[in-house]
């Protein structure tokens, strides 16, 4: 059942400082509204609980993608289209570009933003697993200043975030210089386009002398929020990827994730798939 749009407010402050000022003055009263690809869907379904929003779509300073020697800074309002078309990201952060390409259709990619994908805090979001693999950090801004948090520490529970009501996600920061890692991204969503993931697994590993020197494994749709599988990672560090090691990793992962049954899939399927994708990744590491 639709919502009545007449009972929702959307104001457009003329610049970013005004947005931050309003957020600070009436904390919790206003929430940011970017490309609308999640919020408008909730509105249509009659499930948009909050009523007052600030339009930040035009805050251009939050859309820029910039590179330094050590890191990439992606403005929170960079769209999936911006991300997937960026030359450096394509070269060095392929998983993120893959995630962007596989999120919705072109029209959604033109409006959906990386910051919005994070702030919507869906456990099924496509880009967060990639961000976790890349050890992303977030730059949060408020009228009082900015702070940086590790993205791995940002989501604290289902739809819960380490974000104050007066704060905005301003930028996503990706450390550069991780050449030579083997990477993997796979989203399982039954159809080939416009799917909501049943399981999404992103991973990267560095091998030395046939053993895992370092590894990142992150998953969507298997826990209340997108997660890093740190226990599984730890169990693999220093290991040679023989059949026993892969079986152990599967078991560790199965114990580490907490998938559920819902209208899109089953806990059992999600668990099997998460293990199978991990195995596919580890086998690809073992063969190179």
């Amino acid at each position: 059942m639709r919502s009545s749009v007449a009972s929702f407010d959307l104001r457009t402050p003329h610049d970013l400082p005004s947005v931050l000022e309003l957020l600070a003055r009436e904390p919790g009263e206003w929430r940011p509204f970017a490309g609308g690809t999640d919020l408008m869907v909730l509105l249509e379904a009659g499930k948009l609980a909050h009523r007052r929003y600030l339009n930040i779509w035009n805050c251009r300073e939050l859309r820029n993608i910039s590179a330094s020697d050590s890191e990439m800074k992606i403005g929170a309002l960079a769209t999936y289209t911006d991300v997937k078309g960026h030359a450096i990201l394509q070269r060095e952060f392929e998983l993120l570009c893959r995630a962007a390409e596989e999120t919705g259709g072109i029209a959604t990619q033109n409006r959906g933003t990386l910051g919005g994908n994070i702030a919507n805090a869906s456990p099924a979001a496509d880009s967060p697993p990639a961000l976790l693999v890349y050890d992303a950090e977030l730059e949060l801004i408020s009228a009082g200043g900015t702070r940086r948090v590790l993205y791995a520490d940002f989501h604290t529970g289902y739809k819960k975030m380490n974000l104050r009501p007066d704060e905005l996600i301003a930028r996503i920061i990706l450390p550069r210089g991780r050449g030579g890692w083997k990477t993997y991204y796979r989203k399982v969503g039954t159809r080939r386009a416009q799917a909501i993931s049943k399981v999404c697994l992103a991973a990267a590993a560095k091998t030395e002398n046939g053993a895992i020197a370092d590894i990142r494994i992150a998953l969507g749709s298997v826990a209340p929020c997108v997660m890093r599988a740190t226990k599984t990672e730890n169990s693999l560090r220093g290991k040679r990827l023989d059949a026993a090691a892969i079986d152990d990793a599967r078991a560790t992962l199965a114990a580490e994730i907490t998938p559920i049954d819902d209208m899109r899939s089953t806990a059992r399927y999600r668990s099997r798939i998460a293990q199978n994708l991990l195995q596919e990744f580890l086998q690809s590491c073992a063969t190179t």
Partner: peptide, 28 residues
């Protein structure tokens, strides 16, 4: 054959959106 699964709960269709009742796209 492969995609279109009506999910019922107590006699109601609960995946009654195009997002969750999935029909083939141009890629499928």
């Amino acid at each position: 054959a492969l995609y279109e699964n009506v999910v019922w709960r107590d006699g109601r269709m609960i995946n009654n959106q195009m997002t969750n009742y999935i029909m083939p796209t141009s890629m499928d």
